[in-house]
Design a binder for these strands. Structure first.
Lengths: 335, 335
DNA sequence: GTGAAAGCGCTAACAT
DNA sequence: ATGTTAGCGCTTTCAC
């Protein structure tokens, strides 16, 4: 019995021929070890949780796909958990899954739940943060260079002679949002007559619309808008369209993330590509390494470069504000 | 020990005061039963799998959300599995998860993998199909009235005087696709001079574009297009836009599913609403009932009514074909 | 009604 | 190098 166990797990202490005989018997009987029994004694289930704030945001399915693919190569199963940025949800999921024998967690939407998660898990090596940088410095993470990406994008808009630039931000508890805002602010400060307009949002499509309407109602609209992510940019595009403003002729528009949808000709949205797949794969690799090595070297911190993807929504020449504001019909899309 | 077990599971055979004493001890010691040990002996893990063909198709995240929410009310955890419509993936997932003690499966993308799944699971009461109707009649399902929805949509287009109507279909192994095609064909047959144009696709965004280009290249374009789902409609819209054709003025366009994105003003897409949330909730309810009741009444078969959502992409009057085909600039969106 | 004992399918420690 | 033994934390007979 224990010999079988040794063979199955490729333990060295087993004779050549014994191993062969056991292997023969195994696939003759169609024997499969029970992960449950194994989990009971070893405490390892090969289950990972991926925490995301909103699976309906196209960014997360893309991330989930890459995480899932990377994990399954090492025979791990990924459970996607929708936190909606609510700490209670994080707690519910993690408490439950921990009892189920969860091995590790990738948190792609660290927010106010960061401390709860860390205290629940106890061992910080069982967690990797991604997308949003954690505040704790005892834990590994893989994030994009959000600040740098925002700077690059903002400078591009400035180079197009935009001066009044609106930034539709995210919630202050999300580090990716604050870092992007920070980059925006820094880049704007480099140009004397640049006027930054800042709106608060919540990563949701509707937030984009709200911000646009508020600006335009106040007759103080920007000539270019940067949205905190591609979904919000979509909401902004909707609102602009509804008000008869054309992109990019009346208002330039850019997003952040680089979701596939943004590349669609219908949006043709300039955005900052996060290389989502790479980020997901790397997060998995780091986590699995930490789970395997008992050696406790410090946390791994990766900041991936972003890539500015120039598309039609910011194309063309300077914007002289206030933008032409013919009401009514046919809003034209990029190009 | 066994008494504790009885108390935890609300077993009747336990004295009033004993129960009280045990409860007291339980939350004094902070005792939590181990699902793993429980699974080892009972064979039940409260784990469900949700099989989907492509999590990046916005339809599935929406479905997953509703399934997940419904399941967690009964303390079940849902694992989302991306099959990409490949039987091998289904087998991999299900074999693995079964060993992990999977309790049940909701398959939202039944395809060529149907038989494999059923043979792997053995007990058909552990499976519920949704979205795509299965061929087996031994198993429960919840699907929309795809045929009826397609008929209603097609008739609407016909009532707008469209006669050449294109249908961008899905793969023949997907029952929802064939049922929709069937409805389309039936409705077209009701009108003598109606000319159905049929293209094959694969539920992906690109398929919409391919079909449009093929039709338009052949100079035989339809005046209205029905896409097999909202994603494909997006692809079609892209392609139409690229060719300088305006929706709905030059070509009317409609989708199927009712994903949130379709409601966006940027698309303003007429579509057939599947009531995704309701479908997901119902699938869970049926599955959990089957898992609980050992009584083996036959499979439950639910066909939910769809709802035609009229929006700007099919708005307005008759289309006289061939559509105006000015090349070049500014494609205008609906409204 | 309650406790004792066996055992779910493995792994780890120990003996051989 | 291999077999034996003792659990992992529960549920389930089976006595009492």
């Amino acid at each position: 019995m224990s010999t079988v166990s040794r063979v199955v797990r490729d333990h060295p202490d087993v004779g050549e021929q014994t191993r062969a005989r056991v292997h023969e018997a195994i696939d003759r009987l169609g024997y499969r070890p029970s992960p449950i029994a194994r989990a009971l004694v070893s405490g390892q289930t090969r289950l990972l949780a991926l925490l995301v704030s909103d699976i309906a945001n196209p960014f997360y399915p893309q991330l989930a796909k890459s995480v899932e693919q990377a994990a399954k190569r090492d025979d791990y199963t990924v459970i996607i958990c929708n936190t909606e940025d609510r700490t209670a949800e994080t707690r519910r999921y993690v408490e439950r899954l921990l009892r189920q024998g969860l091995d590790g967690v990738i948190h792609a939407s660290a927010a106010r739940d960061e401390k709860v998660l860390l205290s629940l898990i106890e061992d910080p090596r069982r967690v990797v943060f991604t997308n949003r940088r954690p505040t704790s410095d005892a834990v590994s993470y893989v994030v994009s260079d959000n600040r740098g990406g925002a700077i690059e994008l903002t400078r591009h808009l400035l180079s197009l002679e935009h001066r009044r630039i609106g930034f539709i931000g995210g919630p202050s508890f999300a580090r990716n949002a604050t870092e992007r805002l920070d980059g925006f602010t820094a880049a704007m400060a480099e140009v004397p007559d640049a006027v930054p307009l800042i709106a608060q949002g919540d990563f949701a499509v509707d937030d984009g619309g709200r911000a646009v309407h508020a600006w335009m109602d106040a007759m103080s609209g920007p000539s270019a808008i940067i949205a905190i992510n591609d979904s919000v940019a979509l909401g902004a595009l909707e609102a602009l369209t509804a008000r008869g403003l054309r992109v990019p002729r009346d208002v330039a528009l850019a997003g952040f993330d680089g979701v596939q949808l943004a590349a669609s000709r219908v949006f043709d949205l300039t955005t900052v590509d996060q290389h989502i797949d790479q980020m997901g794969r790397l997060a998995v690799r780091i986590l699995l390494r930490q789970l395997a090595d008992s050696a406790s070297d410090g946390p791994t911190r990766e900041v991936l470069p972003t890539e500015l993807l120039l598309r039609g929504s910011t194309e063309g020449a300077a914007a002289d504000w206030p933008a032409a504001r013919e009401a009514g019909a046919g809003a034209t899309l990029a190009r």
